[in-house]
């Protein structure tokens, strides 16, 4: 056994340090790689609803003759792309007002304040919201309370004697 030259020991010490630095980098890098290849699909799946775009479709809600002129009635129809397990939640409601022989208005049932379902009081000719007391006139304009906008409207048309409503996203009042 002969002692190595002092210079060689220094070289060897430096090599050990370099080796440890290298191993640290490899380990941290590989861990990051593992986290990334699992994490990307995880995050992607989590935010997937942001990138799903569903085509809106026309839904028949009843024959024209079912709605008397001057009345406002609740109609129900399936939303644009119901999933098989969605059940009743895939159903959407609208308040359908027949203005004249050929003119219909379909109001969203969601109050523009915070989205609660407005009720139609036929004799009073008013929509009222149960949550914070928003009130709308029969044409959807705000009559009282906190709603910032009139009731939103769905596109509506008459085809082959049927009233049809175009499905729409839940109306969100933006800031």
């Amino acid at each position: 056994m002969s002692d190595p030259a002092p210079g060689a020991a220094r070289d060897e010490g430096a090599a050990v340090v370099r080796r440890r630095e290298f191993l640290t980098r490899v380990s941290v890098g590989l861990s990051a790689w593992g986290a990334a290849i699992v994490g990307i699909p995880f995050v992607g799946f989590l935010v997937a609803p942001l990138f799903e775009r569903t085509a809106q479709v026309w839904r028949a809600v009843g024959p024209v003759t079912a709605f008397a002129v001057g009345t406002t009635t609740e109609v129900a129809f399936p939303d644009s792309s119901p999933l098989p397990w969605a059940g009743v939640v895939a159903r959407t409601a609208a308040w359908l007002r027949r203005e004249s022989d050929d003119r219909f208005i379909a109001f969203s049932v969601n109050c523009t304040h915070l989205g609660c379902p407005v009720r139609w009081l036929p004799d009073a000719n008013l929509f009222m919201c149960p949550c914070h007391g928003g009130v709308y006139y029969g044409d959807g304009t705000v009559a009282a309370g906190p709603p910032p906008h009139p009731l939103p409207r769905y596109p509506v048309r008459v085809r082959d004697g049927q009233v049809e409503i175009l499905t729409s996203p839940l109306p969100i009042t933006t800031g």
Partner: peptide
Amino acid sequence: GRIPAIGSAVAHFVLAGDTWGGQT
């Protein structure tokens, strides 16, 4: 939805779609 700029995207994220549905 009232959050400036990204409000409707966040609402979409909360609902997991255009409206309530199978994913919500």
